[in-house]
Design a protein around this nucleic acid. Structure first.
Lengths: 229, 229
DNA sequence: ACCTGAACACCGTTCAAGT
DNA sequence: ACCTGAACACCGTTCAAGT
């Protein structure tokens, strides 16, 4: 394709010199641009037209390389979820640490692309999502989680991570929103004494909360059957 | 408003007789219609125009009663999440059962309106969402969950329920999809031996899985600090 | 106070056509 | 094999106007 590109170059003498001589359209280039757009503008900002503009192509050219918008979203999601299984740790490591690391990485990746988490639940079968699930499954069964508990355990971690990440990335209160919420709760005759007292909506150590809840899940799982490390 | 309606009637002799003489437009009527439409067509099927048609009003009439589409969605969500705190159980009941019941009800409500769960994470502050969180908070602190663990516990349950429900309602595989998935996993040199072996994607006892994972969470929480029932 | 139509600035995608 | 423009059937919302 380098050949093709340079032949295109020859046609355009240097005098014109477009902003950048665009490499030919390709699935890969489309996905890259889609991720950029999604990162910059969120899911509502991705439009086939804007995507084409961003690339410097006609809208309909995209459809040669891609089925439709849904396809673009699926590709972008999978791209972002890229997972290279870490080199198998030398020596036996704590399975809890392994799960923790795996899920914190997963969450971190999705928070870096805040549009991604909400898309994942209907795209469970993506290449990299499956790879991550596979890894989790391996870790848990090597840890001795009973066969009968395995699927429930995996889906529990999944649910927890998705819920946490989707919530975190779609519910970020501005300072003003927080003030409003707090005020509404503290109204005379407030109907929410408990969550007002604990400051549930004022919580801001999301990393800590995430880790703590994961701890509950791991502890509960450890109690089940013969989970031997 | 009955007056207004009957006066309208007079203008139209029985010969025409519209399907139903429409009661006047109101926020309430709009929300009801929105929920119907959402239940029938999903989130992609709700359109201001279709909503107006469904009600028998002009599109722009809606905007007198409602700020915008986002507002409609928020109202519909809160409507569906309706929560009447159950009459305080006579006698002390198991706090685990109470949490279980609370969260299973929450999940069931959202599954009955499959569009709702995905909307909730950015609408945490809705009336009924807060009421349910309040209830959960009360139950947990009465159960003796330490002050320091309370918020983490509440958010953990939230995350778990949201993750489970969103996944369940956006990822329902047809029989064909399942077959495809299974086949892809089972390909020669398959890269997913673990999740193939456990049949992770063939799981279909979602209620059971949900309850089991909730059990892990509850068990883990019970281990923490002095949780006395 | 409540409703309306026309208009604006967008969408995703089909289709028939170009090279 | 790859790209394109025109066109279709939609969107949400503003605005100026009606009653």
């Amino acid at each position: 394709m380098t050949a093709k590109r340079s032949s295109t170059r020859k046609k355009r003498p240097e005098t014109v010199q477009e902003p950048r001589a665009e490499p030919p359209l390709s699935r890969e280039r489309i996905v890259t641009a889609a991720v950029e757009l999604l990162d910059a503008e969120g899911v509502g900002g991705l439009t086939m037209r804007r995507l084409a503009d961003h690339i410097g192509a006609g809208v309909m050219s995209l459809y040669w390389h891609v089925d439709n918008k849904e396809d673009v979203l699926a590709l972008a999601l999978d791209c972002v979820l890229d997972y290279r299984r870490p080199p198998d740790m030398a020596g036996p490591s704590d399975w809890r640490d392994e799960v923790l690391h795996l899920l914190e990485d997963w969450r971190a990746v999705m928070l870096r692309h805040p549009w991604s988490a909400s898309l994942l639940p209907r795209q469970v079968l993506g290449r990299n999502a499956l790879a991550r699930l596979e890894r989790l499954s391996m870790t848990l069964s090597k840890a001795g989680v009973a066969e009968a508990d395995l699927n429930a355990a995996i889906w529990s971690f999944w649910n927890y991570v998705m819920g946490a990440t989707i919530t975190r990335s779609s519910f970020d209160l501005s300072a003003k929103d927080r003030a409003d919420a707090q005020q509404r709760l503290a109204q005379p005759g407030g109907q929410h004494p408990a969550i007002e007292r604990s400051g549930l909506l004022q919580e801001d150590d999301w990393d800590g909360v995430f880790r703590k809840g994961l701890g509950f899940l791991l502890d509960g799982l450890s109690l089940q059957g013969q989970t031997t490390a």
